[in-house]
Design a protein around this nucleic acid. Sequence first.
DNA 1: TATGTTAATTTAAACGTTTTAAAAGAGGGA
DNA 2: TCCCTCTTTTAAAACGTTTAAATTAACATA
Lengths: 334, 334
Amino acid sequence: MAVTLNDIARKAGVSLATVSLALNGSDKVNKDTKIRIKEIADQLNYVPNARARALVKKSTKTIGLVIPEVVNPFFAELAQSIKDYVRSQNFNVILCSTDYESEEELRYINMFRSGQVDGAIFACVGDMMAQHNDLIIKLVEENIPVVYVDRDGVDHDLIPVVKSDVYHAAYQAADYLISLGHQELAFAGQSVERLNGFKSALMKHGLNLKEENIYYDYLKMEGGYTVGEKIAARENKPEAVVCLNDEMAIGVIQALIAEKVKVPAEISVIGIDNIKMANFYNPSLTTVNIPVSQMGEKAAEILLKRISGQSLSPREKFFIFPTELVIRDSSRKA
Amino acid sequence: MAVTLNDIARKAGVSLATVSLALNGSDKVNKDTKIRIKEIADQLNYVPNARARALVKKSTKTIGLVIPEVVNPFFAELAQSIKDYVRSQNFNVILCSTDYESEEELRYINMFRSGQVDGAIFACVGDMMAQHNDLIIKLVEENIPVVYVDRDGVDHDLIPVVKSDVYHAAYQAADYLISLGHQELAFAGQSVERLNGFKSALMKHGLNLKEENIYYDYLKMEGGYTVGEKIAARENKPEAVVCLNDEMAIGVIQALIAEKVKVPAEISVIGIDNIKMANFYNPSLTTVNIPVSQMGEKAAEILLKRISGQSLSPREKFFIFPTELVIRDSSRKA
DNA sequence: TATGTTAATTTAAACGTTTTAAAAGAGGGA
DNA sequence: TCCCTCTTTTAAAACGTTTAAATTAACATA
């Protein structure tokens, strides 16, 4: 159905090889024939068959991106920035969302092994994903470069990692709240790294953390909402709460407001990520900025470097971005 | 580098064809050899080369999805639902975001023509995109099925369209506000169809629309914000405003609040889409629900039907979803 | 013994490119 | 005429599958 090199060759009265050469701009073919062939190709509206080309060139000009879900402002922005960079280098991206299911990630890994992509970025979090690390290493050994974004690496020499300093982000958040005079802080969300950063800030100021102030709830708005409800129901409430991410923070605030607890008058709430919504929420959300777009771009850049066979500088093998406190209206002095 | 059928054949001492047949479960090959071959394949960790397979089977088990941007709750949800359905049928999706640029869409169309996908869904809006309709028809004629989502179709028999009744959605929004007793209504956003729905509601109630009450601003939160500012600056403000989508509505409200205009006490604001955030915003957003997920699933279902060569019922060629008013806290009686 | 049947395996072509090595053609000089 | 060089074109292999058709082997039937 579709036009092939052969069709053009027949029409131009030359061999298929000449056509291929001509269209690829080889200087071995006569100028006039080249022009003639190009004209015919245009006229027939020829588009080379990517599958056939990929088969012989061993390159698909496509990368895979594995994220937990698109419906998540953080990962959406990550995806966007990766796509933007990669696209500027004439690559495409196959978006693979796992819905936090380990099984799904496995399917994607196999798909990548089947030669569908030239490389892949894994931005999937979660402990059960760690079990795939060896499979992913196998991927790399089969010459399909991989870079991790915000996922703990295995062996930096095989798999570069691009991260933000979320430990420090949580530290900054807690430290800031304490500097406002708050003494009893709560933490919402399940993330060892962030919880540790949170803890270390308390420790530094000689505050101790009660078990009841840690809420291991689901990392989305709904999870935040239930945390907010639990807090609202307590007699002696914490003075401030650090949330794993902005979505949770919004959920927490929403629940508190619904239960007539004033934010920030009675409780300060702070998020992490600085998604766009943080600035448009009401009250606007104090948070810690994580430079997602920059991270995505960096990861993409590193991956394409790897794909084109360039070697990486030591820094690029473990690239960590700093975070920054963004003060808005969901927090205030004690 | 990667393991091929040939490697397995050599190791098993049979021909390549037998291996292929065996692994594809053909009942022509002897039970024992089949088992033996499968064992060897497992042991070598064989994954068939998708490019080669695609070349001969003329099917990639992949579809393309064209949307304006991932960083947009509406399209993110659409993408998610399409991916979910398609994935359940063992297809993958290449996500293509155009950033509202016509040029980008063109590149994607050509990529689709190159045999990268078995079919495509176009959810891209915008007038300048219409100029690609003939190219897209060419795509279909080359046997790459296409379905449109929320994009005006050209010829229903070639390109099925899945829509929601946005005209009616805007009508519902305006009609509801009028029923609350509001007389002077504003509209924010550029969408002929929605504006027309809005107008028809006014007309039905004998209200006339002043030119100054139409704000043709950008369809995102920032756009909404500037609309909000403009409204706040006016002496005689409209009593209520219908926004093209929830994002704009949030922007409008945010600006109004910043300018000390109370929502909904002084102005009612209503959105369209019913994104998740609408429910978590503060005040929670009155809006008109558009069943994105259902639309995505339907579109995917229709596309896969087409790909597998099934014919469509007349209804499937133009599938329109009803919308539904969702009353929350950003609107109230005059 | 010849013939037919069935089951298992293999050969070979095909998919649409790229690319290397070889062939063909055109001049030019001796 | 022969040989050399240079330019242009072509043949053919390769990429890794699938699959229709051909082959082979084993065995039963007449």
